[in-house]
Simulated scan of single mutants.
Amino acid sequence: MRAPWLSAPVMLALALALAEPSQLRAAPVAEDPRDVRLKELSERVADLEKALQGVNAQLEAATRAADLARGDLKGLQDRVTGLEAGRGPTPAAAGPQPAASPAPVRATPATPSTPAEDGLTRGRKQLQSGDAQGAEATLTAWLAASPQDPKAGEGAYLRGRARGQQAAWADAAADYITALKGWPSTWWAPDAVVELARALGRIGKTSESCQALGELAARYPTAPEGTRKRAAAVAAQSQCGT
């Protein structure tokens, strides 16, 4: 029998005080599926960027080694050229020759100057005409002279294409990684992702190649159909999803 002095509010407070903690614990709030998907995507992007950083470090080391090799080769060529020049016939001594009369100077009409074509435009034209080696040289000089140019990313992308056409896949991958920093929203960016995946696959980085292709749809959902078809071909070459 309940004591008459225990009122209803007092009884409620007593019941709450004696209740098990598990009885008072609020039910967990279900996490929004969209937040879960966004979190998973962010983690995949972070994993890909970390992997590409590692690949980039390896490519930089390979590039430095190639530069050293090229430097050694150039030194050897210079020495050979010097030896060949030393074997040449020594010109016979000749007596003093009379000084030639200066030719009359004729005035020539001034030629109007035209604005010089920048290296990016010239390199793009060379690449389109099939001169991959010339395009690489032109774009390398332009990038060295214009590292802060807003179109430096496009220059790196075009040089990557030029190097890829010469099967210099490691150098090409390094250029594509440079071009894609920050995932730019440019006309060439989707193609750069596919070409990066191709270059990574050619140097045996098939896992990173597949990760790059996985970002194409997420980063560039409106990529042209031709780009998506080439991405599928690269995925088959890298055996993604098998």
Results as ranks from 00 to 15, higher is better:
Val29Ile: 14
Ala116Lys: 15
Met1Arg: 12
Gly164Val: 04
Leu16His: 10
Gln128Ala: 15
Thr140Cys: 06
Arg2Phe: 06
Ala46Arg: 15
Glu60Tyr: 12
Gly88Phe: 04
Ala94Lys: 09
Gly241Trp: 09
Ala174Ser: 11
Ala174His: 08
Val194Thr: 01
Pro150Met: 05
Thr121Gly: 04
Gly226Tyr: 03
Pro147Gln: 02
Lys74Leu: 15
Gln58Arg: 14
Trp169Gln: 04
Pro221Tyr: 07
Met1Tyr: 10
Lys74His: 10
Arg34Ile: 04
Trp169Ser: 01
Arg70Met: 04
Ala107Tyr: 04
Ala65Gln: 14
Thr222Met: 07
Asp72Thr: 15
Val10Lys: 04
Ala107His: 11
Lys74Ala: 15
Thr206Gln: 14
Ala167Lys: 10
Glu31Thr: 08
Ala62Cys: 05
Thr186Phe: 04
Ala173Thr: 00
Ala156Cys: 03
Arg106Val: 09
Leu41Phe: 08
Glu31Lys: 10
Ala189Glu: 06
Ala152Val: 09
Pro98Arg: 13
Gln23Lys: 08
Lys229Met: 12
Ile203Tyr: 03
Arg44Gly: 01
Asp67Arg: 12
Pro9Asn: 10
Pro9Cys: 07
Leu120Arg: 08
Ala92Val: 14
Pro184Ser: 00
Arg79Pro: 02
Leu213Met: 07
Gln58Tyr: 02
Ala13Thr: 02
Arg37Asn: 05
Ala212Thr: 13
Ala15Phe: 14
Ala116Cys: 04
Ala217Lys: 13
Gly201Asn: 15
Gly86Ile: 05
Leu18Arg: 12
Ser209Pro: 02
Gly71Asp: 15
Ala235Cys: 07
Ser7Ile: 06
Pro91Ile: 01
Gly160Ile: 00
Gly88Pro: 02
Pro224Leu: 09
Asp149Met: 07
Ala179Lys: 03
Val194Phe: 05
Gly86Gln: 13
Pro4Thr: 06
Thr222Glu: 13
Asp78Ile: 11
Ala66Lys: 13
Gly241Pro: 06
Glu215Gly: 12
Arg44Tyr: 02
Arg34Val: 10
Glu117Phe: 01
Ala19Ile: 07
Gln53Asp: 14
Leu48Ser: 00
Asp35Trp: 08
Asp175Ile: 02
Pro21Met: 11
Lys39Gly: 10
Pro33Glu: 13
Ser42Pro: 00
Leu68Ile: 04
Ser129Met: 09
Arg159Ser: 05
Cys210Ala: 11
Arg122Gln: 14
Leu158Trp: 01
Ser146Asn: 15
Tyr220Asn: 11
Ala8Val: 15
Ala57Gln: 09
Gly153Leu: 05
Pro28Trp: 10
Ala232Val: 11
Val55Thr: 13
Ala197Val: 03
Gln237Val: 00
Leu143Gln: 01
Asn56Thr: 01
Asp131Arg: 00
Arg37Tyr: 01
Glu49Cys: 04
Ala135Ile: 00
Pro9Met: 07
Leu38His: 07
Ala235Ile: 01
Glu136Leu: 00
Lys125Trp: 01
Arg161Tyr: 00
Leu139Phe: 06
Val29Ser: 13
Thr111Val: 15
Pro98Ala: 14
Gln166Glu: 10
Glu20Gln: 14
Ala99Ser: 10
